[in-house]
C-alpha cells in the first residue's frame, strides 16, 4: 500500500516526466501493436488461403460407379482428408461452362464431353504442409483408375514460404522493437529515478533497506508500463478502426494477445525501473 501511495505520489510530483515515460512506452508498444495487427491479419489470410488447399484426382474414362463409390469412402478415411467431393463428367462440364462463360458456345456445341470425372479433396487443418499434400497425392496415384493428380505444388510451397517469411519478420521486428522499448523505458525511468535522487539519498541516510527504496520505483514502473500498454492499445485500436472504416476489413487482435501485450508492458516497466533504480542506488551510494 505504501509503495502504491509513494508511486502515485512520485508520478504526481513529476507529471511531465511520468507523462513522457508513459508516452514513450505507449508509442513503442503502439509500433509493436501495429505490427501484431498486421501479423495477425496476414496469418488469418494465410489460414484462409490454406484452408482452400485442394488436391484433385482425375479419373480414367469409364471407371465403374461401384469402384468410384468404394474409392470415395476409402479416400475419405485418409487421416489428412477433411472432405471428398466426387465431380462427375457432367458436373465438370456444367462447372466449366458456368465459370468460363465466354466459352459457353464451345461447350454447348460439344458432341463428346472431354472433361474427366474427378475427386476434389480438401485437407484438414494441420495436414496442409507440402509433405502432407505430397503424401496424399502419392497414395492417390496408387489407384489404377486415377489418371492424374494435380495439387499446384508450387503454389502450396509459396503459401508456406510466405508464412515463414511473415513469421520470421514478426520475430525479428518484434524483438527489435521490444529491445528499443526496453532502452527507451530504461532511460525514461532512470530520468524519473534521477529526479528523485535526493529522496533516495535521504532514505539511505536514515537507514531504509534497499528493497524498501526500490519498491515504490518498481510499482511506479509497473503503473507506467500498464498505462503505456493501455495507451498503445488505444492507439492500435484507433489505427485498426480507421483502416477498417476506410481501407480494408481487418480483424482485431485476439484477446490473449491484448492481455499478453499489457502484461508485457507491465513487465517492461518493472524490468526497466529495476535496472534504473539499481544503477541509481549504486551511483548515489558512491557519491
Amino acid at each position: 500500500m505504501r509503495s502504491l501511495r509513494e508511486a502515485t505520489r512520485g508520478m504526481r510530483r513529476a507529471p511531465l516526466l511520468s507523462g513522457l515515460s508513459i508516452a514513450a512506452i505507449g508509442l513503442s508498444l503502439f509500433i509493436i501493436g501495429l505490427f501484431a495487427l498486421t501479423a495477425h491479419n496476414i496469418d488469418e489470410a494465410l489460414t484462409d488461403v490454406e484452408s482452400r488447399v485442394e488436391v484433385v484426382a482425375y479419373l480414367e474414362e469409364g471407371t465403374p460407379e461401384a469402384i468410384v463409390s468404394v474409392a470415395r469412402s476409402e479416400i475419405g478415411g485418409f487421416p489428412e482428408i477433411e472432405e471428398v467431393r466426387f465431380v462427375s463428367k457432367v458436373e465438370a462440364l456444367y462447372d466449366a461452362s458456368r465459370e468460363l462463360t465466354e466459352f459457353s458456345d464451345v461447350f454447348s456445341d460439344l458432341e463428346v464431353n472431354p472433361l474427366p470425372a474427378s475427386f476434389e479433396l480438401r485437407l484438414r487443418e494441420g495436414s496442409r504442409t507440402p509433405e502432407d499434400v505430397e503424401r496424399v497425392a502419392e497414395r492417390l496415384r496408387g489407384y489404377e483408375f486415377v489418371e492424374e493428380v494435380r495439387y499446384g505444388r508450387e503454389w502450396v510451397d509459396k503459401v508456406y514460404a510466405l508464412r515463414r517469411i511473415a513469421g520470421g519478420a514478426a520475430l525479428a521486428l518484434g524483438s527489435a522493437f521490444a529491445l528499443g522499448s526496453i532502452l527507451l523505458i530504461g532511460t525514461a525511468v532512470r530520468m524519473a529515478v534521477l529526479a528523485r535522487s535526493r529522496e533516495i539519498s535521504i532514505m539511505q541516510t536514515v537507514g531504509a533497506t534497499d528493497s524498501f527504496i526500490r519498491r515504490p520505483f518498481l510499482v511506479e514502473g509497473l503503473l507506467t508500463g500498464v498505462a503505456g500498454g493501455i495507451l498503445a492499445l488505444g492507439l492500435t485500436w484507433l489505427a485498426w478502426w480507421t483502416v477498417n472504416r476506410s481501407l480494408l476489413e481487418l480483424q482485431w487482435l485476439p484477446d490473449l494477445w491484448v492481455a499478453l501485450g499489457i502484461v508485457l508492458a507491465a513487465a517492461l516497466g518493472v524490468l526497466a525501473a529495476g535496472r534504473g533504480v539499481r544503477k541509481e542506488i549504486s551511483r548515489i551510494e558512491a557519491l
Binding site: 539519498s201 535521504i202 539511505q204 541516510t205 536514515v206 537507514g207 533497506t209 534497499d210
Partner: peptide, 16 residues
C-alpha cells in the same frame, strides 16, 4: 548497513 545507519544519525550542512 541500513541497521547501522538507524543507529547513526546524519545531519548535513545543506539540510537535504
Amino acid at each position: 548497513i541500513p541497521e547501522l545507519r538507524r543507529r547513526v544519525g546524519y545531519v548535513f550542512q545543506d539540510f537535504q
